[in-house]
Design a protein around this nucleic acid. Sequence first.
DNA 1: TGGGTTGATGAGTAATTGCCCACGAGCAAA
DNA 2: TTTGCTCGTGGGCAATTACTCATCAACCCA
Lengths: 317, 317
Amino acid sequence: MAKRSDTQGRLDDAARAGWLYYVAGRTQDEIAAAMSISRQSAQRLVSLAVAERLIKVRLDHPIAACLELAEALRKKYGLRHSEVVPSDPAGVSSTVGIAEAAAAEIERWLKRPDPIIIAIGTGRTLKAAVDQLPPMECLQHRIVSLTGNIGPDGSAAYYNVIFSMADAIKARHFPMPLPVLCSSAAERETLHGQALVRSTLELGAQADVTFVGIGELGVDGPLCIDGFLGKEEMLDLVKSGAAGEICGWIYDREGQLLGNSINDRVASVPIPSREKSSVIGIALGRKKFAAISGALKGKIINGIITDEATAEQLLSV
Amino acid sequence: MAKRSDTQGRLDDAARAGWLYYVAGRTQDEIAAAMSISRQSAQRLVSLAVAERLIKVRLDHPIAACLELAEALRKKYGLRHSEVVPSDPAGVSSTVGIAEAAAAEIERWLKRPDPIIIAIGTGRTLKAAVDQLPPMECLQHRIVSLTGNIGPDGSAAYYNVIFSMADAIKARHFPMPLPVLCSSAAERETLHGQALVRSTLELGAQADVTFVGIGELGVDGPLCIDGFLGKEEMLDLVKSGAAGEICGWIYDREGQLLGNSINDRVASVPIPSREKSSVIGIALGRKKFAAISGALKGKIINGIITDEATAEQLLSV
DNA sequence: TGGGTTGATGAGTAATTGCCCACGAGCAAA
DNA sequence: TTTGCTCGTGGGCAATTACTCATCAACCCA
């Protein structure tokens, strides 16, 4: 055979080896024999063919596009976890698909035999996800709520998800016996000093994985709808740059928590460490774009479960 | 989570696993961890994805030797289209490689935005090629079968390729509601007079591109195997100089249709014009040499997709 | 001419993958 | 309800593949 040093000939051989390996399905030994080279050389040619992208692999399934988007999101924002579900073209109902996917992910964590601490935020999407969970026995785990369970009117807050979760999952649950918003920063300090609350706070800080909804701001956002904030307060917040909220913590388009705002009165557990644990946001939709984008940019979350359309939007900026 | 036993969900998982393995390049262990299943299950999903043809591998590199052969073939026989794929040295299976290449060519035509008419012949190689096609929506095109879809025993002929094609490609399909061989020339005239058949005949004559398999003659050839012809008839044909058949039309070593033969009874659409359209033959193998060579010499086809070994053989005469 | 650089090679070894087996859940028929 | 039957599952093992290392030939430039 001709000199092997020329690049062209080598690529040619690589193509041939790659063809035999991937298309014809032969083993590297057979290729080596067929091309009269050593098995190691055959292996090198095959991997060269891959490295030079001579081999194109295509997956014919609707999920392929979702997986590509998920991978792109993960790279762009340095995420630990990224999942994209197909968009429902006619979908007005925003939780179709994503709820199942989120439930599947929660279930994966629940199935672990080693004991872990799971923190749960709030939100309608998260609620829909938790409602998809099958009954399970997970006595080894502990589940802690990041947000208070007392609504602005004193009743139990409906979208406090931990109660829904307790219905399906047999595990130790730790709700937050607090309002969502305190009347002042001082009151928050007092409440957080209580022994019962302290232990929940500490537990939350140790969470191995956290699932949170992402709320958009505006008079139609959950904070207003559920009566935690009045319209004027909300409009002020938006004017001062607020873009979204997670567990009541309000941040701007870059994901920076707002300073002189109601953040001082939020009674929620601080969002667990994104260095040491997974904090997975569950959200989709055009309305929530600024909120999701901000959370990702500011690394308030290091995992995302969303849909195709939202993923594309997030990647286009 | 939903039932894991449903086929759809399993294929979804297979697609995921296959994507992670082939596109993202993860190991099966990583896939297993990501999907919370055992490594063995991950391996099964990956091989399921392969078995279900969700994974398509294609080699994008013009191997110099193949290109030269293709060019030489094109010149020698005045072809519009010529493609040569590497030979599998140990390959007994005759369709490996050529099927992918043929599928790629068919796909190129299907991707055209302007509406065209694609005619399809018959044969095992062509069938294998069509099976490689990814699902596509091509409502602008029309696909017409050149051969009848009723076998000698009255059943649907298995190697009538248009049905396989209809599975993958969303387009208007026109099968031929006829047997492959009529009992006499007179019967053929009668059948071809039917309105339904007439329109298919006319459509076939307008085809922009035609893909046909090339069958060798002999008692092991497809015409005998599939029961269209008896052994004695076949031996007579061979004695009278028959070298190959395309869509049932039998020709000699020079590519001239045999006169006083069963050609008068073939119900197939005449092979579309080689002046105005592309007629691409797909075949390889020593056994088929005489058939391929004749088709090329007689210009029954003006395009060929074959393999290295066959190409060399064709050039050596 | 000689030293440094690049890149291919083969051997050995670790990692990964494919396959077989026995087990158990789910399901349909008896 | 019980009895088979099928199918998915995980464990274990052998086959296959990927990686590392030391060596060597070719090439480049002073």
